[in-house]
Design a protein around this nucleic acid. Structure first.
Lengths: 199, 199
DNA sequence: TCAGTACCGGAACAACGTTCCGTATAACCC
DNA sequence: GGGTTATACGGAACGTTGTTCCGGTACTGA
């Protein structure tokens, strides 16, 4: 039988029951508050909705960005996972555009998420980091496949494209509905301009 | 001789000499502070640099956006004026791209300006308004000429393009130098995709 | 049941935008 | 030049946020 000591050492004690309860209601409250007031909602509002003190929020999430990432983790992971399915079911360019549109609505439908993704404030830095870590590989492969098929140019960096679309998802005043979609499509058409089949 | 009364009535009294002095040092101070700390710099910092009280700032510029617009008014106007010269000296598509790049650097080189251009806070609303009023007509004519020449598609709205580029100018972390330029060029290539000569 | 400690809540501090009001002074008239 | 008035001034004060600190609470394990 293998020596279990290293595993036992690596295991950390489970958190206290009340701490876990608080964490759960915190995530639930944050999700609700983010939905109705945007991700910049005051910490106090999230805390009071969760029925906990302010310090409890900071104890679990020293940086606001970690809370944001935790709330949207599932959706981000699902978006990343969708890339493989799309690649199987569609030809490369179609898969790419469908995924980019999915990514767009992931970001654009959460009020303030796009803005926080692009914020300079160091408290938000973990948000783009989480996005990069999970979504860049997904886009990378779709982009590579479409380029190999000669449907898009091959000189565009996946992460930069991710950030560019993220910027275009920031809501803007005085524009008609569908603005974000039109701009993202324009960027996608830019990908197609000058595409050449691989030699 | 024409009746001068309506004109006299329309003329407003010149401001008090000290008020004008304060306005001047305020603009100068704001320009300096914006350059070194970005356009989000605290009002107190601008006031103290100008040697005036906080209330004086608010008296002249009730909305922060008005101060921003006032500081950059000259550069915005110059950018608008450049459109005509470019249209004279270059063929339509070349004129369009040169102008878009000029617009890009106007925005991207002022720290925080792009972000304030896209902010949702109503206190910043006058910034996009000023940009729209002065720059949309300029872009409109360049875009129309390039579309008429069949060099770019004709289904893109000038104001939306302005806002899209504005969003892409928001600085982003973890990307290499030239990111903004690459994204703007990608958008421009999108304009070219599917262009048809006018019938 | 009881000790020890992990965890809690809210007061407290700092930074900022914004408003208010008593005071100072430039402009005008005589 | 001197007095009067409207204009403009400055900074204190208030409300809202992010963030930290600390005295107290209550869960866990024996």
């Amino acid at each position: 039988m293998r020596n279990l000591v290293p595993f036992v050492k690596a295991m950390k004690k489970p958190p206290r029951a009340d701490a876990q309860r608080n964490l759960d209601s915190l995530l639930e409250a944050a999700k609700a508050v983010f939905a109705e007031s945007g991700v910049d909602a005051p910490v106090r509002e999230i805390a009071s909705r969760a029925g906990v003190g302010i310090a409890t929020v900071y104890r679990h999430f020293p940086q606001r960005a970690e809370l944001i990432a935790a709330v949207y983790r599932r959706e981000i992971d699902a978006c990343a996972a969708a890339a493989q399915a799309l690649a199987r079911e569609h030809e490369p360019f179609e898969a790419l555009t469908r995924w980019l549109h999915r990514f767009t609505s992931l970001i654009a439908t959460k009020r303030g998420l796009a803005a926080s993704l692009n914020a300079q404030d160091p408290a938000y830095q973990a948000v783009p980091a989480y996005f990069r870590e999970h979504l860049e590989p997904a886009l990378q492969s779709l982009l590579g496949a479409a380029a190999a098929a000669g449907r898009v140019r091959n000189d565009v960096d996946a992460y930069e494209l991710l950030r560019g679309i993220g910027s275009l998802c920031i809501p803007v005043s005085e524009v008609g509905p569908g603005y974000t979609r039109r701009m993202v499509d324009l960027l996608i058409d830019g990908l197609r301009y000058g595409a050449r089949a691989a030699p």
